[in-house]
Simulated scan of single mutants.
Amino acid sequence: MSTVHQEIPVARPGGLSGGTLKDLIDASLHMPFPFLRNPHEADVAAGVDAWLRTWGLTDDPAVARMVVRTRPARLASCTSPTVDRGTLQIVANQIAYQFVYDDRAEDVGRRWPGRLLPMVCESVGILRDGLSPSTPLGAALTDLRRQVQERCTPAQAARWSWHGREYVHGLLYESVAQTRSVPLATGVCTTIRSLTAGVEPFYPLYEAAQSHELTPEELHHPVVERLRRLSVDAAVWTADLFSAVKEQRAGGLINLALAHQRAQQCSLADAVRLAVREINDTIGEFQALRAEIEPELSPAGVGYTQGMTDWIRGCYHWSRTVPRYADSAVAPVDP
């Protein structure tokens, strides 16, 4: 399938004095993967809007505005540039759902932590046992589960559900962390962030997008499992760089740059530099391991690892342009 290429400034090694945080990120982040977009993006964007309306998720004007600012179909396009239109629609629907769910969980968790439990329990019941929903969010998740089951094998759908449960549990951990008076350790922050990233639930869809199923030996190979971990961290930590200003103003804690700022008692710009260094190391390890394992993989295994690469690239190119994180383009490096 053809993909849409677009020329944009590529991140280059080095530092920066002055300018904005976005300038600093672009100048110092190592992003070796070229920008790609899926040619079905526009059609899928219309499909996402219709799907959200069907389940009443954008009836609230504030939620509708949030969706416009996050552009879920654009993120799906950047992270899944070669999948067919049907798979891209599921990816985009799930991204939109997770944005709505994440913001709702964050709001409820900060104000009334106990009220987050029914949200999490409903989601777990749907994902684990196929229970009937009792809320619009639950109804949307039930329909999303149906879409995945129709597209994936039973084993792939089971992995999707498992990763989805880890995601909602991560939001519960985040709520606990936000209410703690004790400073949050960086390691705890990154552990929670790997769950709330919500990236791994998409990987079974990339399994399903291949012409043949991956063998268990490929799927559970230690190097492939390590690649999954590295790709999730690199993708979500890159988004953290661009969202740091927004999260700092909102009092957020689960963000790699803000975790470095708390640990080092430094400026946000210096914290971003530390986070970029960690991301660059992660991407470097990912590249080396992927080059090592791919000669041993089937074409389906290679396509699966390409999906991991696409999330690293896609999160960068989406984060640097999405209105949700526009504050990074005006926040000065040297205030």
Rank of each mutant, 00 (worst) to 15 (best):
A331M: 13
A234S: 06
I192F: 03
G19F: 01
S132M: 05
T135A: 04
A244Q: 01
E122M: 10
L137R: 05
S181K: 08
V322T: 15
D84C: 08
R110A: 15
M119E: 15
T190F: 11
D26S: 12
F33E: 09
R324S: 04
L205K: 03
W55C: 07
M119H: 13
P9F: 09
P183V: 03
P295D: 01
T190S: 13
R37C: 09
A263K: 12
I192C: 02
C315K: 09
V67T: 11
R262N: 08
C266S: 15
D281Y: 06
Q98R: 11
L144V: 05
P34S: 05
G252C: 10
Q265F: 06
P222S: 09
R12G: 13
A329L: 03
E218G: 09
P204F: 08
A92V: 00
L116G: 14
R69A: 15
R65A: 15
S123N: 13
T82M: 07
R110T: 09
D143V: 00
A62T: 08
V199G: 11
T142V: 00
V232W: 06
S161K: 02
N93K: 04
H317F: 15
G114A: 13
W237P: 01
L205P: 02
A27C: 13
G198T: 04
D129M: 11
Y203I: 03
W162E: 15
N280E: 11
V223R: 09
P335K: 08
S28D: 10
C121P: 00
Q98E: 14
A62L: 08
L141E: 07
L52F: 01
A235F: 07
V245N: 07
A209N: 10
Y101Q: 12
S28F: 07
D270Y: 00
R249Y: 08
G130H: 02
A73W: 04
P118S: 09
D26Y: 00
G307R: 04
T135Y: 05
G130A: 05
L195H: 13
P34Y: 02
G187K: 02
E200I: 00
A73N: 04
V276M: 04
I312G: 01
V100S: 12
V68D: 15
W112Q: 15
V63W: 09
S28Q: 12
P299L: 02
Q156N: 10
F286V: 00
V176F: 12
S80F: 01
P204A: 06
M119V: 14
E218V: 06
A42E: 15
P32T: 01
L171P: 05
G251Q: 02
L172G: 05
A326H: 12
L144S: 09
S211F: 08
R229E: 15
W237I: 03
L227K: 02
L241Q: 07
T282M: 10
R12I: 11
E122G: 11
E166T: 06
F35D: 13
Q89I: 00
A92E: 03
